[in-house]
């Protein structure tokens, strides 16, 4: 049974084909306003499609203009960004709510809910109010509530965004484990590349409502195709036309590759492989660069060059450079990756 969707909504100009296999975790990764949450809402049934379709196996969920299955009739579990736990109910009642709504008896719903609370590790708070929980605990309760009805489709909206940094990395690995155990289809929405890489089997990059790249986390990280992704994974990305080892970039500059390529190419390279020198050299891939910005990262200094490339340099090197004088940047051809 496959979740097969073509999500088309006017809001955010969303036009997103999406296929999710059982047991697969797909992450929609994109900047704010790209339409990620809108996509999730259409899958949950909280927003109808303008065009396209959502099908689970042979069951149509939304197929304008004929079919629209109300959210309460879809087998989904949703974990909302700020969890939306019901404050007037205990944690246990929150998790049992979906089961009760779907007709399970009170005692059975409660015991199932308790089992889920045990699974996510917050059983001792079963009788507490959601308000009294910490962020990490509330996140687990929200996950238990979404999973308790054994949905076919699990939807997670920025599942870790509301957590502080310390809690976040612990909960992230935990969530990855739960998602691995979940046999259904998972779609998660995030703007954090690390969340997406750790949690998902496949990434769908969404920019301005359109898919700009899709693939395994590893593939996307190594071969970014848009500036947004390159920036996310911390690579420089240039676009150009290759003829053998010579590349004419879209901005008119030339690059020399170590391995030959042909036609339209993306050229990616790490900012660490860019060096800066006050002395002009004749080595390939050297150009006169002007510094457009400098910022301090953990242990390196990031220098922006010509607003297009950035170089990560050790602070000791930065100290020897005078940014007001002419500088020459260079990259070793073997550090360039063209695809």
């Amino acid at each position: 049974m496959t979740l097969d969707a073509l999500l088309q909504v006017d809001r955010a100009g969303l036009d997103l084909p999406l296929t999710v296999n059982p047991g697969e975790v797909v992450a929609l990764l994109g900047p704010n306003g790209a339409g990620k949450t809108t996509a999730l809402r259409t899958l949950a049934g909280l927003l109808p499609l303008r065009d396209g379709h959502i099908r689970l196996g042979d069951q149509p969920w939304d197929q304008p203009p004929r079919t629209f299955l109300a959210p309460q009739r879809r087998t989904v579990g949703v974990m909302f960004q700020d969890y939306l736990l019901f404050d007037h109910m205990s944690v246990l009642e929150n998790v049992a709510f979906g089961l009760r709504a779907r007709g399970t008896s009170r005692s059975e719903a409660r015991s199932t809910a308790l089992t889920w609370l045990l699974t996510v590790g917050v059983a001792e708070y079963a009788l507490s109010r959601p308000r009294s929980l910490s962020g990490g605990q509330a996140q687990r309760v929200a996950l238990a509530r979404a999973l308790a009805t054994t949905p076919d489709v699990l939807l997670l909206d920025e599942p870790l965004a509301a957590l502080d940094a310390a809690t976040r990395h612990r909960v992230r690995t935990e969530l990855a484990r739960h998602l691995r155990d979940f046999p259904g289809h998972t779609v998660l929405v995030t703007h954090d590349p690390l969340d997406a890489m750790v949690l998902a089997d496949r990434l769908v990059i969404l920019e301005d409502g359109k898919v700009t790249q899709t693939g395994s986390p590893r593939d996307v990280a190594q071969h970014p195709r848009t500036d947004y992704i390159a920036h996310l994974v911390g690579l420089n990305l240039l676009h150009g036309n290759a003829n053998g080892t010579a590349v004419i970039l879209d901005n008119g500059n030339h690059l020399t590759l170590a391995a030959p390529a042909q036609g339209q190419v993306h050229v990616a390279f790490s900012p660490v492989s860019v060096s800066l020198s006050p002395v002009e050299s004749t080595a390939p891939n050297t150009w006169r660069a002007s510094v457009t910005g400098v910022e301090q990262h953990a242990h390196t200094t990031r220098v922006h060059l010509d607003n297009t490339v950035f170089a990560d340099l050790p602070p000791t090197t930065v100290a020897t450079l005078d940014f007001t004088k002419p500088l020459w940047a260079s990259i070793n051809p073997s550090d360039l990756r063209a695809y």
Binding site: A44, G45, L46, P71, Q72, R74, F97, A101, T149
Partner: peptide, 21 residues
Amino acid sequence: EAAATLGASRWLTFRRVTLPS
């Protein structure tokens, strides 16, 4: 909306979620 995704009808949602809040 959260109640609806958990399978609650509008009437159940009104009684158990909206009214208490």
